[in-house]
Design a protein around this nucleic acid. Sequence first.
DNA 1: TCAAATTACTATATGGTGGTAGTATATTAA
DNA 2: TTAATATACTACCACCATATAGTAATTTGA
Lengths: 137, 137
Amino acid sequence: MRLSKTSEYALRILSFMINSDMQVFSAKYLIDTLNVPDKYLRRLMTDLSKNGFIKSLKGRDGGYIFAKNANTIHISQVIDAVEGMDRYEGCIMGFGDCSDSNPCSLHENYAPIKEQLIHFLSTTTISELKSTNVLKF
Amino acid sequence: MRLSKTSEYALRILSFMINSDMQVFSAKYLIDTLNVPDKYLRRLMTDLSKNGFIKSLKGRDGGYIFAKNANTIHISQVIDAVEGMDRYEGCIMGFGDCSDSNPCSLHENYAPIKEQLIHFLSTTTISELKSTNVLKF
DNA sequence: TCAAATTACTATATGGTGGTAGTATATTAA
DNA sequence: TTAATATACTACCACCATATAGTAATTTGA
């Protein structure tokens, strides 16, 4: 589906956090567990903090913790924060002015599929990633 | 939906060609009409030729022409030729081993949407881009 | 035959995403 | 108070997609 790698990382991290019993997650722990590059993960966590999904606890025994209930964090919001949702909402052929009333030649057939995708991303929350029978996060 | 820009260009070009009465299209004509960068379009046309969608006629009055019936060219084939379809077929969170039997936490909900998307791209042909009431290509 | 029109090829530049390195800052247990 | 453990910030690097430039090769009308 081609989310950016950053979006993939963000979703994996939040999915891992919601599926763990722990409350506070140090960057080091997430890096070792999830195989996300060290500094890249740290920067991403700061980004996710600034966007209010998680908050950071500095100093000894610090780490990251959800800043709000995971059932209020929608996948589309996470994607929007780290790479922007625009690209998924636009015309499949890249026309800036493509719409129902001024469609490109693929619009009619593609619109319903895009509609479903956006609906999926904007209604599914991080808490729905909690699963008992899923091995990967 | 975030096809690569190259895929967007390719689809726009083929869509334009199928909607025109002309048979042979010079690079210069396509460049002027479709606002695709000069050398980039030329290289893309060569690429599309090598993949058998169009063929080139060299020399004076040369240009490009469909190499086979447009109803045998599927959108997925064009995408596959210029950027690869892999990215659209993989896991939404980027897990290499995500599958029905070994799903990620989004798999169950995302799989049907991805299925529709792939079905759309692999069953729609260039000839279906022909339209009488569409202004853009 | 030759000049014009055209595509093909090769090399290079640019911009953005992903990734790395080093330093600064904050917190807390001892 | 201080050393250890964290996160935050800033700068830089690498790769790939996109874009540009210049030259070579091919065809054909006159």
